[in-house]
Amino acid sequence: MVVLNAVIEAAGLEKTYPARDRGGTPFRAVAGIGLRVERGEAFGFLGPNGAGKSSTMRMLGGVSAPTAGTLRILGLDPAAHGRRVRARLGVVPQDDSLDVHLTVRENLLVYGRYFGLSRKAVRERAGELLEFARLTEKADERVEHLSGGMRRRLTIARALINDPEILLLDEPTTGLDPQARHVLWDRLFRLKQDGVTLILTTHYMDEAEQLCDRLVIMDKGLIADEGSPRELIERHITREVLELRFPPGEHEQVAVKLGRDGLPEPERLEVLPDRLLWYAEDGETALARATAAGVQPITALVRRATLEDVFLRLTGRSLTD
């Protein structure tokens, strides 16, 4: 028997921000979501900007009270036990918000004290974490001199200072170059292996596929679907995608020509402003059929379907909109 041990349970969770100006309308960022995260899981929120991911994360972090719904973090109600909850969490905010007036090591030392840890305990832990974040050589440099990737690694190290049971990461690799992203992913993998529960938001498909055991797709404050990356792809779309490009304005016309409405299940055609997507089990065969129909694209590309395609299918919009 598998013993499930939920670290986060939420039902009907809502967050509405009051209107900024008199006469303005209140903004409902999260419109009622339910979720359950098990201990040791890597759980992701995927969605475009404004989907409600960050608002959800702030509620999970115990700093923003839900407007409605129930929330249990580590079995506690954060509204009543905010400090005790926060003492067991690690938070990696989107904008780092490191203490720019201090050095790398001092950032860890000072931050650890905020958790009520003793000076000695913090000093030992800081040494380990510098090693973990590969920042030992930079320990005595001021934070302003660090690269973006180093800053983010320091932010993660800082979030780990209290040995948290859950690590919350808001868009951990946004704004980093590809190499820095891979270094970061590697560190997060290790944490996962050590049994830390990871909860992250992202609008990168590859990141979600790399890191998450399970994820929810969010759109307009709601959860559109939930599952492992593979499950979601299998549930909603085909294995491969054929991308066809034509001169601007011709895509709609070509879609009709290819018999959009008469395609066999589960095949599907999707018209985007700049290209045409043909979802098919075998992309090459689809391409052959297109050529046979007398269609001459500027470029044609066969690729594996990704979460981006799932998102498009579920919301009718592209993630990067």
């Binding site: 904008d95 203490d99 720019v100």
Partner: peptide, 14 residues
Amino acid sequence: FDRFYHSLIVTPMT
């Protein structure tokens, strides 16, 4: 600018 206080309130500081 530093968003310093935002980094404090995620800790047990009140």
